[in-house]
């Protein structure tokens, strides 16, 4: 499973992207939870980050501070571990 996170906006307005080849039950459950939470995000706020999470070609958009727990966990994990 290929997961890509693109983070834009923020106070600095500096874009950051990372991608992981994710395998294992932990990733599967997290990805499923993120896709299930699609549409839950409210509008962004001034200087808040905006995120695009693409899981095997399906893209979910969300923005701080309205991330679900699963979205936040996945975003920080991909940005930390991904390249």
């Amino acid at each position: 499973m290929r997961i890509r996170v693109r983070r834009t906006g923020g106070f600095a307005g500096i874009e950051r992207s990372a991608e992981v080849e994710a395998d294992g039950p932990g990733w599967e459950a997290l990805a499923a939870a993120v896709l299930a939470g699609d549409g839950a995000a409210g509008r962004g706020v001034p200087d808040g980050f905006a995120y695009e999470i693409t899981i095997d070609g399906r893209t979910v958009r969300c923005a701080d501070p309205h991330l679900t727990e699963a979205q936040r966990t996945l975003v920080s994990r991909v940005l930390r571990e991904g390249a």
Partner: peptide
Amino acid sequence: YDEKYGNAFWNGEQMV
């Protein structure tokens, strides 16, 4: 706010 969070924002009511 959050862990290693490289940002600050205004959420409509307060600063973060």
